[in-house]
């Protein structure tokens, strides 16, 4: 074996080692990229679970407050009203006192009615008992009576009694509440359209209003103003939902929400 052959073989050995080093770097970077993706997925999942837990806690707390209001404050007010009725019978002597008594009674009745309303609004019992369609229907009817705003609710292809996953029902109901409140409070809308439809493996919810609209980019930049949109986004992330929001000044708003349905519901 000549020196030249030996050097050639030696160089080949060196090339093998260099190749090993290059392959190591490539493989390392590949594994690192895979790890980054896995960590990001894990973080997103953790965030989703945290959000889900916080929403669950929120619902439990709402239920507790509603129960306390209804059972404790509501009952106490009813008892006060009954006691006051007894008292007012004995105040017949003075016309001035009778008038004052009537006014106080009206205040008491108003308070009882408000406590019941708040209690009902805190926990959508219709949603739990009769489902999403009935709950939205009840909600918009109440708003219509109170504000005079015209509502069009279309749920073609979904029966009144059809039920979906509890989390999905609550998400859509709370988002509908948020959007309707925004449309009344900020947009001064006169007509609101809600459309709910079940497509292949997904639930589609479209909300439009004829309010004054707003500058979406400006609202997104303002951390205080964009809170409602971020709430919607957070709620949707729990059920893997997505949404698109379109608006401009004087053009009202258009919100499209898509939520994938679990296999057994699609």
């Amino acid at each position: 074996m000549s020196d030249l052959q030996l050097i050639f073989i030696g160089s080949s050995g060196l090339i093998v080692l260099i190749t090993f080093s290059i392959l190591f770097v490539v493989y390392y970077k590949q594994k690192q990229a895979e790890q980054k993706v896995a960590i990001q997925e894990l973080k997103a999942e953790m965030q989703r679970q945290l959000l889900e837990s916080s929403l669950e806690v929120q619902e439990v707390e709402r239920r507790r407050i509603a129960k306390d209001l209804h059972d404790e404050v509501g009952a106490m007010l009813s008892m006060t009203k009954m006691s006051f009725n007894q008292l007012i019978k004995k105040l017949n002597t003075s016309a001035e006192l009778t008038e004052q008594g009537k006014t106080t009674k009206e205040f008491l009745e108003e308070s009882i009615s408000q406590v019941r309303r708040i209690s009902r609004e805190l926990v959508p019992s219709t949603l739990e008992d009769f489902g999403l369609i009935s709950a939205i229907d009840e909600f918009i009817q109440k708003i219509h009576i109170a504000s005079g705003v015209l509502f069009i609710f279309n749920h073609e292809g979904i029966e009144d009694t059809q039920r979906f996953d509890k989390k999905i029902e609550l998400t859509i109901y709370r988002i509908a509440q948020e959007l309707v409140n925004n449309a009344l409070k900020h947009a001064e809308a006169q007509e609101i359209t809600l459309k709910l439809s079940a497509q292949a493996r997904k639930l589609l919810f479209i909300f439009t209003d004829n309010g004054k609209g707003f500058d979406l980019e400006a609202v997104k930049k303002d951390p205080k103003s964009g809170l409602g949109l971020r709430n919607i986004e957070s709620r949707l992330s729990v059920v893997n939902g997505t949404f698109t929001f379109k608006t401009s000044i004087g053009q009202g708003t258009h919100t499209k929400i898509e939520i994938p349905l679990p296999k057994n519901e699609s």
Binding site: I9, G10, G13, L14, L17
Partner: peptide
């Protein structure tokens, strides 16, 4: 170290 000792091992052992 891989190059140096790997190369030297190759030279020492096999060549």
């Amino acid at each position: 170290l891989l190059f140096y000792f790997g190369g030297n091992l190759f030279v020492n052992l096999f060549l």
